[in-house]
């Protein structure tokens, strides 16, 4: 028949293979964004800006990563999705440990948080000043990923706050507090 464009073959919609790039591009981009936002603004304002950057990315990744997934159910299921598939896609591994107090607080532990890998922890026995400086630096790098996690969760219907604690780098905990 003339005039009708050929139809796609029935079945799954063809998806192009995911585009790849070198990880170092993302690392340097994140490092630069930390520097950039802290250079022009006070600490809290810079933190808020970085969190906002992450939040938008989290919303967009929630759309992308849940596109082909069966419907996620309750809060726990959504958080488990974040700990497994989402963390894997974003940080190349799953969360190592998930704890909850069953009253709206979830603690995610990642023993080798990828986005802190480039920061070297202070040598054991360093003076408290050094340790604190290293901790502050790590915290500045964590606003963006916290924003991503919070953005994704909120976009999936779990309204919450996310706070990171770089206890012993590169190990890091993320505390999710569900807002009632």
């Amino acid at each position: 028949m003339a005039g009708i464009p050929p139809a796609p073959s029935p079945g799954v919609v063809a998806k192009k293979p995911a585009r790849r790039c070198a990880e170092v591009c993302l690392e340097l981009l994140c490092a630069e964004s930390v520097r950039l936002f802290h250079a022009k603004q006070s600490g809290p304002a810079a933190a808020a800006a970085l969190e906002a950057v992450g939040y938008r990315v989290g919303q967009q990744l929630a759309e992308r990563y849940t596109r082909d997934k069966p419907r996620l159910g309750d809060t726990l299921e959504i958080i488990k999705f974040v700990c497994k598939d989402f963390w894997q896609a974003l940080f190349k591994k799953q969360v190592d440990n998930l704890k909850t107090n069953h009253r709206g607080v979830y603690v995610l532990q990642d023993n080798g948080f990828r986005w802190l890998q480039r920061l070297s922890p202070p040598a054991p026995g360093s003076d408290p000043g050094r340790e604190e400086a290293a901790r502050q630096l790590a915290l500045s790098y964590l606003h963006l990923p916290c924003g991503i996690v919070r953005g994704a969760l909120c976009h999936l219907g779990v309204i919450c706050t996310v706070e990171a604690d770089p206890k012993q780098m590169p190990s890091c905990t993320f505390t999710i507090r569900i807002m009632a």
Binding site: A18, C21, V24, C25, L26, L144
Partner: peptide, 12 residues
């Protein structure tokens, strides 16, 4: 070089 899915880079 270690690779990642580019979309995270693009979106960030």
């Amino acid at each position: 070089l270690e690779q990642i899915n580019a979309e995270v880079f693009t979106l960030t």
